[in-house]
């Protein structure tokens, strides 16, 4: 009984973790490079989800139309990211991060208001594309094909970002800017451009995640908020903008949450915060602290 439950906890936890990661990836990217925690990230995730839904409808015909809708949503939200950067964030590059936090919070409310105006307050639902719309049974665990798809998507996105960050020259420049923007600038790196590109990439990731995670839950104006909080926790546990740390933190949070719901159902939703508190005290600089921090 315990064994079969544990298998379920692991599969489900991994799936939740990857869902958190799809959202947190963009968040941690911007956090690492611009040192700002974007409170509006969940709102842009939500906009991406609505865009993808508007393209693909409730019953995607194929995997390709589903993925395509996600990509288009990602592109559009990336453009919104560019606009946000030009109108709001560039003006706040040099101010105390608390102000940026409040500005992005305001942006979040604004986006929710606008989305409500465009799409209304009704709920929508989207089903997984037919290729992954099967029920599977592993031992006594009932798992859907879509759950496995989310796990795979999370792994692929991680692999791509990690390769960019640690293998390609773009990533190396980004890490240089993250570590010391002044030094990078004197060495001839176009720092403002790198910052803008990071914002665009982060927003595009949020929009794409919105499309991919549509079949996971109801589409409503509040769809981003549940993911946002977990993503914050993951970014903080993982360490300042460290993509690998965030990835591991997401898996930990997902599995803890899943175990909490399975074994301590009467106190659901508490364990992740205890884990967070433990990590903050035990490893205040995150799982993979940035170089130079103590």
């Amino acid at each position: 009984m315990i064994v079969s439950k544990s298998i379920f906890v692991l599969i489900n936890g991994l799936a939740s973790g990857m869902a958190f990661f799809l959202v947190a990836a963009g968040l941690t990217w911007v956090f690492g490079i611009l040192k700002i925690l974007n409170m509006a990230h969940g709102a842009f995730f939500m906009i991406g989800a609505y865009l993808a839904f508007s393209i693909v409808g409730s019953n995607p015909e194929s995997m390709w139309s589903f993925l395509g809708a996600g990509l288009v949503a990602g592109l559009v939200v990336g453009v919104l990211g560019y606009l946000t950067d030009k109108i709001v964030l560039t003006r706040l590059r040099t101010v105390d991060y608390h102000y940026v936090l409040i500005a992005t919070f305001g942006l979040m409310l604004f986006c929710e208001g606008v989305a409500k105006w465009i799409w209304g307050i009704d709920y929508f639902s989207v089903m997984p594309p037919p290729q992954v719309d099967q029920a599977l049974k592993i031992g006594s665990s009932y798992v859907s094909g879509y759950t496995l798809f989310v796990i795979a998507a999370g792994l692929v996105v991680f692999a791509v970002i990690d390769t960019i960050m640690h293998r390609l020259w773009v990533g190396k420049i980004m890490r240089a800017v993250a570590n010391d923007p002044w030094m990078a600038g004197t060495l001839g790196v176009n720092v403002p451009a790198i910052l803008t590109i990071s914002v665009i990439a982060s927003f595009a990731l949020a929009g794409f995640a919105g499309g991919l995670l549509l079949p996971n839950q109801t589409l409503s104006i509040n769809v981003g908020s549940s993911f946002l909080l977990y993503s914050f926790l993951a970014v903080v546990i993982g360490g300042l903008g460290n993509i690998r740390g965030t990835f591991v933190a997401c898996i930990i949070l997902g599995v803890v949450e899943s175990a909490n719901a399975t074994f301590m159902a009467n106190f659901g939703g508490i364990a992740v915060y205890i884990v967070l508190a433990v990590f903050l005290v035990w490893k205040p600089n995150g799982l993979f602290p940035a170089q130079g921090s103590t």
């Binding site: 709001v88 003006r91 706040l92 101010v95 102000y99 940026v100 409040i102 500005a103 919070f105 305001g106 942006l107 979040m108 409310l109 604004f110 986006c111 929710e112 208001g113 606008v114 409500k116 105006w117």
Partner: peptide, 20 residues
Amino acid sequence: VGLSEIVIGGTLVLVIIAAP
């Protein structure tokens, strides 16, 4: 009704940008 998010959110962004 229904405009409060836009008004409050917009005010905040404006305040931070224009009158920090």
